[in-house]
């Protein structure tokens, strides 16, 4: 019964008024905005994850220890063992 209904009643759905528009500019605007709304959230989420990972890597770097100049002055190369 379902197959009969699909075969005899169902027709192509025209849910998108812009897709069948005779105006080229209108069809192009529909494509452009579809691309924008598809990729914008992906770019935002991807950019956010990338930025968080970079920030986490920076935090994991060991902090540099400041060595006083007076200590650095006393450093000499070790004498060679004979």
């Amino acid at each position: 019964m379902g197959a009969v209904a699909v075969g005899s009643v169902a027709d192509l759905a025209r849910a998108c008024p812009s897709c069948a528009s005779p105006l080229e500019e209108n069809r192009q605007a529909f494509v452009d905005t579809t691309i924008l709304l598809t990729f914008l959230p992906l770019i935002m989420i991807g950019g956010f994850i990338w930025w968080l990972r970079r920030k986490a890597q920076q935090l994991e770097q060991p902090p540099e220890i400041a060595v006083p100049e007076t200590l650095l002055r006393d450093i000499r190369p070790l004498p060679k063992e004979r």
């Binding site: 105006l23 209108n26 605007a29 529909f30 905005t33 709304l37």
Partner: peptide
């Protein structure tokens, strides 16, 4: 972005 999209399509139509 949704508002802008609606505007761009409405403007082109």
């Amino acid at each position: 972005s949704g508002l802008i999209s609606a505007f761009v399509i409405g403007k082109s139509n």
